[in-house]
């Protein structure tokens, strides 16, 4: 029986091998070889190279500061998404089944549209003559310059990735029984203790999955900063792209950057999991 069910994963296994394992192998190959195919660390070294004689430090090195900037925007996006998504997911999970279905569908609705199109829409909403500023104008509030700033990028990222935070949270919270909450209340817990000692620990797997699903794509995103941020600062995804199709393409450094980013994201994820482990009561959660 066990063997047979293992076979069911074969299609995914093949898919994974072809489109995940092999590409990662190619990235590794490019990152650690030079133009002649010889093994080298130069590509990785170049990312962290800086010239103190020109007043450069590790922190204002082009690559390092771009990575930090992307991690920062990813962090902001994740926190804001969590703050918005958590109460919403909880209230959805407490609603009647019919309402739940409708609400989940509404959450998924924007995802039916291409993300590029949605980003374009956000762009025109936030622009100087856009709907937001027209609306604010009704109240005599001067037009806000949001477009072409970091704020616009974060708004765009939150908008694009919010469903990925809501859905895992909801799918965990919906399993928290009404009786568990009632039991806690019967034992004299007030609203805060119910939240802190029952709801929160039970929803940790959802939080972790949500964080992963929002943080990872928002750190490595590209195009959004060009569209919403006026391309004033590149995100690491844009830099990696430019290393392949830019003026001075260098796929070695591009691959090394992708690799460094991957490692950094893994570290961030590991730290989050470790930090939450003590609070976690339930193992697993749903697979990514």
């Amino acid at each position: 029986m066990k063997k047979k069910s293992g076979m069911l994963a074969a299609p995914f296994g093949i898919w994974m091998a072809l489109f995940t394992i092999v590409p990662i192998g190619i990235v590794l190959w490019f990152a650690f070889t030079d133009a002649n195919g010889q093994f080298t660390f130069d590509n990785v070294r170049e990312i962290f190279a800086f010239d103190p004689s020109k007043g450069e430090t590790l922190w204002n090195d082009s690559f390092v500061s771009t990575i930090l900037y992307s991690l920062w925007l990813g962090f902001l996006t994740t926190v804001i998404s969590l703050v918005i998504a958590y109460p919403l997911a909880f209230s959805i999970s407490r609603a009647t089944e019919r309402v739940q279905l409708t609400m989940v569908m509404l959450v998924m609705l924007p995802m039916w549209m291409n993300f590029l199109l949605r980003t374009q829409a956000i762009k025109s909403l936030l622009s100087e003559s856009g709907l937001l500023n027209q609306f604010l104008g009704l109240f005599g509030v001067g037009s806000l310059e949001i477009l072409n700033t970091d704020v616009a990028i974060v708004i765009g990222l939150v908008y694009d990735f919010l469903p990925f935070m809501i859905l895992p949270l909801y799918s965990v919270m919906v399993k928290i029984g009404k009786s568990e909450i009632e039991a806690a209340q019967d034992l004299g817990a007030n609203v805060f203790s119910v939240f802190r000692r029952v709801v929160l620990p039970l929803s940790v797997p959802g939080i972790l999955n949500g964080i992963t699903m929002v943080f990872v794509p928002s750190v490595s995103t590209f195009v959004i900063s060009t569209l919403l941020g006026g391309s004033k600062r590149m995100m690491i995804g844009d830099v990696i792209e430019s290393m392949f199709v830019g003026e001075a393409p260098n796929r070695g450094v591009g691959s090394a950057l992708a690799l460094v980013l991957m490692v950094l994201i893994l570290i961030c994820m590991a730290v989050t999991r470790l930090a939450d482990k003590s609070e976690s009561t339930e193992e697993g959660g749903f697979a990514l």
Partner: peptide
């Protein structure tokens, strides 16, 4: 020449960091 293109592209990254 390639060195110049690379130098300009490095400066460009620096401008946009």
């Amino acid at each position: 020449p390639e060195e110049t293109t690379r130098y300009v592209s490095d400066l460009w990254l620096k401008l946009k960091r």
